[in-house]
Design a protein around this nucleic acid. Structure first.
Lengths: 228, 228
DNA sequence: AAAATATTTTAGGTTTGCCTAAAAATATTT
DNA sequence: AAATATTTTTAGGCAAACCTAAAATATTTT
């Protein structure tokens, strides 16, 4: 397998994430995501096209080829395994792991990553609740749904939080919501799209929980998966 | 603390190692060590001089400043801790750790390295027997001596092997010599400078060991420290 | 559908780190 | 100490990855 620069890898990863939502990705979107300028994106897209990692026609956006997708999954696998390592073994906090993993993910030894995976006991989710692709690039797909989209009275488990500002974490901490929290949406108020949710303690609950109110802004940043 | 490029870090590390032996380092030496061209070395020396990491006057070689030395020790610390991690936790073999650590050493989070150090139990030597600088840059100095220079009948512990070609490792394996082996030089033959050594089993030895012959070439690549 | 606006690409420039070839400085021989 | 050889530096270029400003294309509004 060929070797790619840190920059190329960052582009591939960003396109992967953006096209989850969009289908095809635009120059401006990608420039914003990578905090770079549109002209730089165009430069790189030409390069990635000659390397057959993206489909790209001038003025018509781009999406990953099969090879591009494979590469993205390799990088995401590295990133999430390092995040797991940092949190689990080195006791980094949830918020700290991402920045360090951004650097570690570009060390490209396959053997390193596979041995790390084994050392960690083949974890299936990173500390943010995102699934870790396996050595063949297979990734758990059970789709996450934003709290806004959960049907009423269906219990689900919080699996992802997009915004990770300290303000957000403060609020989540206060409401006692985190990755793995099981909850149900009880009511939805159309006036401001706020939700009333109930947290389901995993162990038997000593006292019944009071319902919690979640604003639209907050709910849009919390994702959950349906329980089986 | 400032941030340095991978290239700058590699130069600093190489100068550190070369000046252990030489005192001051020359352009050609460094170019050979880094597999680059003398002209590139001159370019970089100018840059490192403006960053106050090396003392450098055109045509007169260079050596690290205090800041350069500090930086070198940080990089060596990273490198050796990762080597220890790879060997001890991920079960990489002795020969494999170096190449991977060459990449990991450039991830520059101080917190990462200090937490890794703690996770590993503050190891004092890497898998090659080289000492690991502590978080303050202190490094064990108890000087290593090449087998040729060991006095007769003084037991010492093998602490370093310079050449790590597969041929060398094959020979060492055969003679059952490795890092940590305790031994004594019994005789020295002036004709070809070969040595007759005796290996001291650490546990009680079932049968007395036969003395082993070591050629001059081999002995020059094996370093040991006197036992206390 | 033409005009106005927004997006994307091109053209040309910068920095980093490398290169080759030629010039300058130093070291070694004779 | 002059001639020769070696080492080091300078000069000028190249590729990667970024940038700004201007031109080309697409989209939206009127």
């Amino acid at each position: 397998m060929l070797n790619y620069s840190t920059s190329e890898e960052n582009y591939i990863k960003a396109i992967f994430h953006l096209q989850q939502a969009d289908g095809t990705v635009t120059t401006n979107e990608l420039a914003a995501e990578l905090k770079t300028k549109p002209a730089s994106v165009t430069d790189m897209m030409k390069k990635l096209k000659t390397k057959k990692l993206v489909h790209y026609e001038a003025y018509h956006g781009f999406r990953l080829t099969n090879d591009g997708r494979k590469l993205a999954l390799i990088i995401i696998r590295r990133h999430r395994l390092w995040e797991f390592f940092l949190a689990e073994k080195l006791k980094f906090s949830w918020e700290e792991v991402h920045a360090v993993a951004e650097h570690l993910e570009h060390v490209s030894s396959k053997k390193l990553i596979d041995k790390l995976d084994e050392f960690l006991g083949f974890p299936r989710f990173d500390p943010h609740g995102d699934p870790i692709p396996d050595a063949n690039g297979k990734i758990e797909t059970s789709k996450q749904v934003c709290l806004q989209d959960l049907p009423l009275n269906k219990t689900a488990t919080v699996s992802h939080v997009s915004d990770q500002s300290s303000e957000m974490l403060e609020l989540l901490g206060h409401k006692k919501i985190g990755i793995g929290t099981r909850l149900e949406v009880k009511r939805k108020f159309n006036f401001d799209n706020s939700l009333e949710i109930k947290i389901r303690q995993s162990k038997r609950t000593p006292s019944e929980q009071a319902p919690i109110n979640v604003s639209e802004q907050l709910s849009k940043n919390i994702f959950a998966k349906y329980d089986e």
